[in-house]
Amino acid sequence: MGRTLVDLFYDVVSPYSWLGFEVLCRYQHIWNIDLRLRPAFLGGIMQATGNKPPALLPKRGEYLLKDMKRMAKYYQVPINTSEDDLQRMLGSSTLGAMRFITAVDMTQPRYVEPLSREFWMRFWSQREDISQPENILAVAKKAGLSSELTQKLLEMISTPAVKNRLRETTEEAMKYGAFGMPAVVAHFNGEPHLFFGSDRIELLGSVIGEKWLGPVPSVPSPKM
């Protein structure tokens, strides 16, 4: 059988996208899949679909903070939560960061995985404002990009080509039915299958005929 193409639409403002990203990056070496990372803009999807941030519903926001802490431990992803996270999400724009990742995807795609991870690390572990150019520079350096290349990429983020690419990717996610992130689309048996959220990777495996080995498949499951 051929390999299953799996698209992951994500935005680095989303902690659940980080969880889904890390799990799929682990499974791309175990399952018979080709993982395609698709940087998109969550703000555009929320506006277009009428979805609302969790912080606008206080009880949901309280649950989300507790849930992120549990999920971070379970998935072994270093999300550092605090009570101001929901307001940070509402008050932070990742448009520049997502355009930067898009520019990298268009020109240096091998850096997309480490770069995206470093943006999440910067925002969700180190609690930095990734909308600032100096933080984008720091993230790029940590991901292995040269200063010269980073400057060229920063110049690209204001070009129509990059803006259009990010918009088109975001619109593509919505065509598949996405209303939030992460949005995972498996192209299987001639049709797209949408899965929403980081906790649907097990279901994804079931649909495409792959065995779920837990969120950290390299670590043996404890015996009962």
Rank of each mutant, 00 (worst) to 15 (best):
E128P: 03
G190H: 03
A97G: 12
Q126M: 13
P114E: 07
D84N: 15
K211Q: 11
R165N: 13
D85W: 08
F119Q: 03
L145I: 06
R122A: 15
K142L: 09
F123P: 03
K175D: 04
E113G: 03
G96E: 12
M89G: 04
V104R: 04
T81S: 10
M71F: 11
K175G: 06
M224C: 13
M68N: 07
G214W: 09
L204Y: 10
F41S: 08
W120H: 00
R38N: 09
G209L: 06
V13P: 01
K73N: 12
M224S: 15
M181E: 01
V184L: 14
K52Q: 15
G44W: 02
V184R: 04
F196K: 06
W124D: 12
P78R: 09
E62A: 10
M174D: 06
L154Y: 05
K59V: 11
G20L: 05
A183L: 08
V12F: 04
I33A: 04
R99G: 08
R99N: 08
D84E: 13
S218Q: 14
F100M: 10
M121K: 09
V139Y: 02
K59M: 13
A72H: 12
K211G: 00
S116I: 04
D199F: 08
K223M: 11
N135P: 06
A161C: 11
Y63L: 04
Q28A: 13
Y10H: 12
V77N: 01
E22G: 06
I101D: 07
D199G: 06
A183G: 12
Y63Q: 01
I136T: 00
Q87L: 11
L213H: 00
A178Q: 02
R38I: 01
A173T: 11
L65F: 07
M181W: 00
S93L: 02
E83G: 14
V207A: 05
M121Y: 03
A178Y: 05
I33G: 01
M68T: 09
G61T: 08
K66F: 05
L64M: 12
E172R: 11
M89N: 03
D105L: 13
A97H: 03
M224E: 15
G197D: 08
V219N: 06
Q126A: 10
F188Y: 15
L57Q: 10
G144P: 08
V216L: 06
G205N: 05
D199R: 07
N51L: 10
L154S: 03
G44L: 02
A97S: 15
M106W: 00
F21Q: 07
V12K: 03
P53E: 06
N32D: 15
L166A: 12
L115R: 05
R88L: 00
Y27I: 02
E118M: 13
A40C: 01
L213D: 00
E128Y: 11
E171Y: 10
L5E: 15
S116P: 05
H29L: 02
S116F: 04
Q132R: 15
E83D: 13
L65A: 07
G144Y: 10
L115P: 10
E128K: 15
A183F: 05
G197M: 09
S221I: 02
G44H: 07
R200E: 01
L145D: 05
P222F: 02
R3Y: 04
P53C: 03
R88D: 04
R122Y: 12
I201G: 01
G20Q: 04
R122K: 12
I136M: 07
S92K: 08
R38H: 05
F21N: 07
H193A: 09
Y176P: 06
L19R: 01
R122G: 08
G190P: 02
L24K: 09
S92W: 07
S206D: 12
